[in-house]
C-alpha cells in the first residue's frame, strides 16, 4: 500500500487505490486558499510549509544553538577547555558540582567547558564532510545517470573502486600519508584532512543514490513531455530531474551528519584524527572510555550532546524532505 509518509523516492502516486486521498478529493478542500495566491517557487512553497512545522522549529533551534556554541563557545562558559579547574591535578575526576557542572576529567579539566568547545570541531567536520560528500557524489551521479553510456560505465567503475576501499584503512592511509606522526599538528590542517578523507571514501554511496534516482526519473513521462516542448538538457536536469531526485540524497545526508560525527570520533580514538589539544566530542568520548566506571559523567555529557546534535540534524532533514515534496502537503 502507499503510505505517503514512508519516503517518497518514487514520485508517481499510486494508481487509484480506493481513492481515499488524492485523486477523488475535490480540489481545494480545506486548503488555506487566500494565502496561496501569490506565485511562489518550489523553495518558497517549501519555506511556507516549513514555517508551520513544530518539528522544524525544534530541530532548527537546537541546531542554531549548536552552531552558536561552535562559533562563540566563550558565551556559554567562562571556563577554559584545556586548563584544569583547580591547581594541577588537584580536582581530577570530580563529579558534577557548582563550579564544574559536568564534573572534571582525569586532568582536572572542566567537562562542561570542554563539551561546549568540542561542538566546534565535531560540527565543522560533520557538516563540511557531509556537504562535500553530497555535492561530489550527487554531481557525479547526475552526470553518470543523465549521460549514460560509456560515461556512466567509467564513473560507476571509479565509484566502485572507491567504494571497495575499507573505510578505516583508507582513512588511516590518507591521514598518515599527509600528516605523518610527529609532523606539526595544525588543528585546521587535520580537520581538513579528516574532512577530505571522509568525502573521498563516502561519495560513491551518494553517487549511487543520485544515479539511480536520475535513471528512474530520466525516462519519466514528464521528462519526455518537457523534451517534446523543446526543453534543453540543462533545463531538464535543473528543473525536472534534480528537484525530483533530491529527496533520497537529502535523507542520506542527514544520516551522514550523524555518522560523520561518529566517524570523526572513531578516527580520533585510533589516533589518526583530531588529537588533543584540539577538543571534539569524539576526542572526549575516546578519552573517557577507560574511566567509564569511575567517571560515567565524562562519557555521558559529550555523548548526550552528540546524540542531541545528530537527532536535530535527522529531524531537520525529515522536515525539509516533507516540505520539498508537494504531494505530502
Amino acid at each position: 500500500m502507499s503510505d505517503p509518509t514512508s519516503g517518497s523516492l518514487v514520485t508517481t502516486p499510486p494508481p487509484e487505490q480506493p481513492g481515499v486521498v488524492g485523486d477523488t478529493a475535490p480540489v481545494g478542500a480545506g486548503l488555506p486558499e487566500t494565502k496561496r495566491d501569490q506565485p511562489r517557487g518550489l523553495l518558497g512553497d517549501a519555506w511556507y510549509d516549513l514555517r508551520r512545522k513544530p518539528l522544524f522549529w525544534i530541530s532548527a533551534g537546537l541546531i542554531a544553538l549548536f552552531v552558536v556554541m561552535a562559533a562563540f563557545p566563550f558565551f556559554f562558559t567562562s571556563g577554559s577547555p584545556n586548563d584544569p579547574v583547580g591547581t594541577g591535578l588537584s580536582r581530577s575526576l570530580e563529579g558534577p558540582s557548582g563550579d564544574a557542572w559536568f564534573g572534571t576529567d582525569i586532568l582536572g579539566r572542566d567537562i562542561f567547558a570542554r563539551t561546549i568547545y568540542g561542538a566546534r570541531a565535531s560540527i565543522i567536520v560533520a557538516v563540511a564532510a557531509t556537504l562535500g560528500t553530497v555535492l561530489l557524489g550527487a554531481s557525479v551521479g547526475v552526470l553518470a545517470g543523465f549521460r549514460g553510456g560509456w560515461v556512466d560505465a567509467l564513473l560507476s567503475r571509479i565509484a566502485d573502486v572507491f567504494f571497495g576501499i575499507p573505510f578505516v584503512l583508507g582513512a588511516i592511509v590518507i591521514l598518515f600519508t599527509f600528516n605523518p606522526e610527529g609532523a606539526g599538528s595544525n588543528e585546521w590542517k587535520i580537520m581538513g584532512l579528516v574532512i577530505l578523507a571522509l568525502c573521498l571514501l563516502s561519495w560513491p554511496v551518494a553517487m549511487r543514490i543520485m544515479r539511480s534516482s536520475i535513471l528512474a526519473a530520466k525516462n519519466a513521462d514528464y521528462v519526455v513531455a518537457a523534451r517534446a516542448l523543446g526543453a534543453s538538457n540543462s533545463r531538464i536536469i535543473f528543473k525536472h530531474l534534480i528537484p525530483n531526485c533530491l529527496a533520497p540524497v537529502l535523507v542520506y545526508a542527514t544520516i551522514l551528519i550523524g555518522a560523520y560525527i561518529g566517524a570523526e570520533a572513531t578516527l580520533s580514538f585510533l589516533g589518526v584524527g583530531l588529537q588533543s589539544p584540539v577538543v571534539s566530542w569524539g576526542v572526549m568520548i575516546s578519552d573517557s572510555q577507560q574511566y567509564i566506571r569511575v567517571a560515567p559523567y565524562w562519557l555521558l555529557f559529550p555523548s548526550a550532546f552528540l546524540v542531541t546534535a545528530v537527532l536535530s540534524f535527522v529531524m531537520l532533514g525529515e522536515a525539509v524532505r516533507e516540505a520539498l515534496d508537494p504531494k505530502l502537503r
Binding site: 481513492g19 481515499v20 477523488t24 478529493a25
Partner: peptide, 8 residues
C-alpha cells in the same frame, strides 16, 4: 463535475 471525495 467529479466523483465526490469519500472524506466528504
Amino acid at each position: 463535475g467529479l466523483p465526490p471525495s469519500l472524506l466528504k
